[in-house]
């Protein structure tokens, strides 16, 4: 997790997670948040890491870069490790705002 925490570029201003409180499709995202939240916050104190739970929503991650550019990726049914790598890919993508 620490690698992901360190590899978040400074241009990333906000990461948002949508997930469901109960559904199995959100389990991986929840595990990821529980295990890596403090690590990510410790290395990126200025990063907003908004966790928004709502019943039945599709688990998703949104990333906002500087100047309001956003992209997102679906995390439905992924396990904790896959969530980490999907997020890693998302924050480090070269063509921001295209995805």
């Amino acid at each position: 997790m620490t690698t992901l925490a360190r590899s978040i570029p400074r241009t990333v201003k906000e990461i948002r997670f949508h997930l469901c409180q109960t559904s199995p499709a959100s389990r991986g995202v929840r595990q990821f948040i529980l295990s890596s939240y403090s690590g990510i916050k410790a290395s990126n104190p200025d990063l907003k890491f908004l966790v928004r739970e709502a019943a039945g929503v599709e688990p998703k991650a949104f990333v906002r870069w500087e100047r309001g550019v956003e992209s997102s990726t679906g995390l439905s049914g992924l396990n904790e490790k896959d969530v980490a790598s999907a997020l890693n890919q998302l924050v480090n993508q070269q063509t921001v705002g295209k995805a």
């Binding site: 949508h18 409180q21 529980l34 939240y37 928004r52 739970e53 709502a54 949104f62």
Partner: peptide, 23 residues
């Protein structure tokens, strides 16, 4: 909705799960 689905779930309360409340 993209920012937070809870903002447009009208007249209902989205209660955070116990695990994340503890976090």
């Amino acid at each position: 909705w993209d920012i937070s689905p809870t903002l447009v779930r009208y007249d209902s309360r989205e209660i955070p799960s116990v695990e994340l409340t503890k976090l």
